[in-house]
Design a protein around this nucleic acid. Structure first.
Lengths: 74, 74
DNA sequence: TTGATTGCGGACTTTCTAGACCGCATTTAT
DNA sequence: ATAAATGCGGTCTAGAAAGTCCGCAATCAA
């Protein structure tokens, strides 16, 4: 079951992801191209609509060329 | 589909989790008690047998009383 | 102003996590 | 020697993530 706190965490994570992506001048599609995560999925993650898994996080970090832990530094 | 790299990442994550848990003198069951993650699940995570989600990571971090990003600092 | 790019959401199938519980062999305490 | 604690694996259901593709309005570029 998804608690309210969980949703908030997802939204925060998404906001941070968006910030990092924009900083690098990447569009959803460009980013998707380099990390095998579909562009629509990236949109959903940034909007806090999914409870992302570790492996997906690592793929995003690779596309952004950052250390995975940075995704949680917010 | 779970790639070989994914499995390796899960195993690394698990090893780090184990280190952090042991450092705090917590058993599976004690830790489970404070984070509503079943003790058998913690075992599976430490063994790299599951692709944990963000929310579960946050619960583990809370039980360990660390910042979530530390779970990825390995 | 035409064409491309972008953000974002819907829909669908497959695969796997979450969550809860059981059991047991081994280690650790009493 | 006995009891408790611990590590760790298995099993089952429900629901959600992964993965893939379509579509469209709005913005941007030629």
């Amino acid at each position: 079951m998804i608690s309210e706190n969980d949703k908030i965490a997802q939204i925060r994570f998404g906001e941070n992801l968006k910030k990092l992506r924009i900083e690098r001048g990447l569009s959803y599609r460009k980013m998707a191209y380099t990390c095998s995560v579909d562009n629509s999925k990236i949109s959903k993650i940034e909007k806090g609509r999914v409870n992302i898994t570790l492996n997906t996080m690592l793929q995003l970090a690779e596309a952004l060329q950052i250390h995975p832990s940075e995704l949680l530094n917010y």
